[in-house]
C-alpha cells in the first residue's frame, strides 16, 4: 500500500465568471521516503492540488475523487478529525517570503504554538524541540527569540521548513518553497530539504514551476497542464526521454548548462481558461503537433515503461521515431 494515493481528483472553484475546473481528474501516488515534483505553468492546478490535499480550498470544493493516506480515506473525514491530520501527518511549507509567518510572534512562539495544538507536552519541551528543529534547518537555534522581520528571506524559509517538520509528518507539501529567493539561497535550501528528506525518510510533494529545481529535488516528476497530468515518470527518464510535447516544451524553455543548446524555445500562448477548458487534449490549442484527433478525443493513460506515463495520442509513435 502506498503512503498517499490520489485518484481522479477533481476540484472546482466557483467564481463570478463561472465554474473554474481547476483539477480535472488527477492521479498521483506518493511512496514513503519519496519526493515527487509537480511541475507546470501558473494556473495549471499545482497549488490547487496541494490545497486539495489539506482540504483548504477557498471558494470551491473537491467534487470528485479519492485521497488516501495509508489506506485511510481523507475526503470523507469530518473537519474536526481532519484537523488532526493537518500538520500532524500532512504538513505544508508555505511561502515564507509572502508572509507565511505571523509578524507579531517570535519564531519560537509560532513553532511552539503549532506543536502544542497537536501534542500534549510542556511548553519548555516544545521550545527545546523548536530549537532542535532550527538546528536541523541549519539556522542558529537562538533565532527562536527573533521576530520574522529580523530574519532574512532564506532564514524565514528555513524557519517555515522547520515548522512543517515539527511533528515528523508523513507527507510534506512544499508549495513553491523557494520562490522569491535568490538562486544561491534557493540551491542551499533545496539541498538541505533533500538531505532532511533522506535523513527523516520524509515523503515530499514538491510543487514548482521551475523544472531545474524539481530535477535536483525530486525522485519523480509529474507534469501538469490544465488541471490534468500530462506526463509523469522518474526524473532522469523524464528529462532524457520526454514523451509529451508539453514536457518537451517546458524542458526547452530552460537553459541547460551541460548540453550545447543555444536557443531557448518559448511556448506561445497562455494556459487555457479553465471555466471553459479545451475539448479533447487540453493542450491542443498550443501543441505544435496537433492533429484532428487531439481536438475531439481525450488522450488516455499510456505506459511507456514502468511508471513512465503519458497522456498523449501520439506518444508511442513519436518515441519510435526517436
Amino acid at each position: 500500500m502506498s503512503l498517499l494515493s490520489i485518484e481522479n481528483l477533481k476540484t472546482h472553484y466557483y467564481t463570478d465568471s463561472g465554474v473554474v475546473k481547476a483539477l480535472g481528474g488527477v492521479d498521483l501516488i506518493l511512496e514513503k521516503g519519496e519526493s515527487v515534483g509537480i511541475a507546470g505553468e501558473s494556473g495549471c492546478g499545482k497549488s490547487t492540488l496541494a490545497l486539495s490535499l489539506i482540504r483548504l480550498i477557498k471558494n470551491g470544493e473537491i467534487i470528485h475523487g479519492k485521497i488516501r493516506l495509508e489506506g485511510q480515506s481523507l475526503l470523507e473525514l469530518p473537519e474536526k478529525e481532519f484537523n488532526r491530520i493537518r500538520w500532524n501527518r500532512i504538513s505544508m511549507i508555505s511561502q515564507a517570503a509572502m508572509g507565511g509567518l505571523n509578524p507579531v510572534f517570535t519564531i519560537g512562539t509560532q513553532i511552539v504554538e503549532g506543536i502544542l495544538q497537536h501534542r500534549k507536552m510542556k511548553k519548555r519541551a516544545a521550545m527545546a524541540l523548536a530549537r532542535e528543529l532550527l538546528r536541523k534547518v541549519e539556522i542558529d537555534p537562538d533565532m527562536v527569540k527573533n521576530y520574522p522581520h529580523q530574519l532574512s528571506g532564506g532564514m524565514k524559509q528555513r524557519a517555515m521548513i522547520a515548522m512543517a517538520l515539527a511533528l515528523e509528518p508523513d507527507v510534506v507539501i512544499a508549495d513553491e518553497p523557494t520562490t522569491a529567493l535568490d538562486v544561491v539561497i534557493q540551491a542551499q535550501i533545496i539541498k538541505m530539504l533533500r538531505k532532511l528528506q533522506k535523513e527523516m525518510n520524509l515523503s515530499v510533494l514538491f510543487i514548482s514551476h521551475d523544472l531545474s529545481i524539481l530535477a535536483q529535488a525530486c525522485d519523480r516528476i509529474m507534469i501538469m497542464y490544465g488541471g490534468k497530468c500530462m506526463e509523469s515518470g522518474d526524473t532522469a527518464t523524464l528529462f532524457k526521454n520526454p514523451q509529451h510535447p508539453y514536457t518537451r516544451a517546458l524542458i526547452n524553455a530552460f537553459p541547460d548548462l551541460k548540453s550545447r543548446r543555444d536557443k531557448l524555445t518559448g511556448l506561445p500562448g497562455n494556459t487555457p481558461d479553465m471555466t471553459n477548458p479545451p475539448t479533447g487534449c487540453c493542450f491542443h490549442p498550443r501543441c505544435a503537433l496537433v492533429k484532428d484527433r487531439c481536438i475531439s478525443e481525450q488522450p488516455v493513460r499510456q505506459e511507456i515503461n514502468g511508471d513512465h506515463v503519458v497522456y498523449c495520442h501520439f506518444a508511442k509513435p513519436l518515441s519510435e521515431e526517436n
Binding site: L56, I85, R86, S91, S94, G99, N102, G114, Q117, M163
Partner: peptide
C-alpha cells in the same frame, strides 16, 4: 495574509486563529 492560511494548514480552527493570530496583529 498567508500566515493565516499557514496556520489553517497546521490544523488550527476559526476561534483559535481569530484569537491567537488575527487579534494580536
Amino acid at each position: 495574509a498567508s500566515f493565516i492560511e499557514a496556520s489553517r494548514a497546521t490544523g488550527a480552527g476559526n476561534i483559535r486563529i481569530m484569537f491567537t493570530h488575527v487579534l494580536p496583529n
